[in-house]
Amino acid sequence: MTGEPFLSIRNLTVGFGAGGAIRAVRDVSFDLEAGKTLCLVGESGSGKSVTATSIMGLHKPGSAHVEAATMRLDGINLLECDEREMSRLRGSLMAMIFQDPMSSLNPALTIGFQLREALLLHEKMSTRAANARVMEVLQRVRIPDAARRMSAYPHQLSGGMRQRIMIAMALICRPRLLIADEPTTALDVTVQAQILWLLSELQREFGTAIIFITHDLGVVAEIADDVAVMYAGSLVERGPVHAIFENPAHGYTAGLLRATAEFVPGEPSRGRLEEIPGNVPSFSMLPQGCSFVERCRFAVDSCHRRTPDWRDVTFGHASRCDQPVAYGPTANLTVEVSA
């Protein structure tokens, strides 16, 4: 753990609208080690996708005000990169896949053409060499009958297969960072399991670092090394996956875990689900103090007055909550159950 982390983000704030007044992401900081998976967890509008597109530099010019103290990837200061440099890094050093492969693939071009494009652009390969590499990658992501699929169009493939194509496209130049934004949300569970497994297999093989964006705690438990929980544009808790699930230290994380209906073989259903009352506040109407305060069953007076600072729970596990000891029962619940 010496030296600079592979990816380091400090105090990232992203605003939209006039003067960046609508701050969709506020003061977000995290690190990611090479070859590890960080899950960014949160609900719609929590700022997880905006965080990702800011790292990728994918905002429309002039639409977003991105500010950060640090944004470094593999020794490169992303804040100093101009659009041309970012464009060179995208696809080669970092790549991104999205929820709906159909809207990321060009419906009028063959799979083979679209996969080849990155190689011709970034690696200045001959078409022939590129084709060979495309075949290899298609086989690697387990596309059956790869030679025939190269001349297929996106609509001729199943949803699971399209997402495999997206993964192939993202990994074809062997990027060191892959950002996956809800890549399995639109897929059936049996196909989701295949894609998650494929991603972790490829990660082991190529040592890719992955930022995986999801709202599904089951998926997080399945693939994360580290977890960062976002709520209303801010990071509220971060730590190793086991710590987050067994000893959640923020009212929101604890609430989410308790509100999730899950089936565990051999165990009776939990009875009435514990609700998180109310709705996610809009960015223009954030409450004073902690942004979760109005929905938190553990809130005390001080939570209304000031935004809590980061507190260390255990090594590597920190929470932005003044009541991190209050969630004991969840810890007991999880420990009991997994014992």
Binding site: Q192, L196, G218, A221
Partner: peptide, 11 residues
């Protein structure tokens, strides 16, 4: 195939 929120029992 259903992912369970239990990091301890990964598939």
């Amino acid at each position: 195939s259903v992912p369970r929120p239990r990091p301890a029992d990964r598939r």
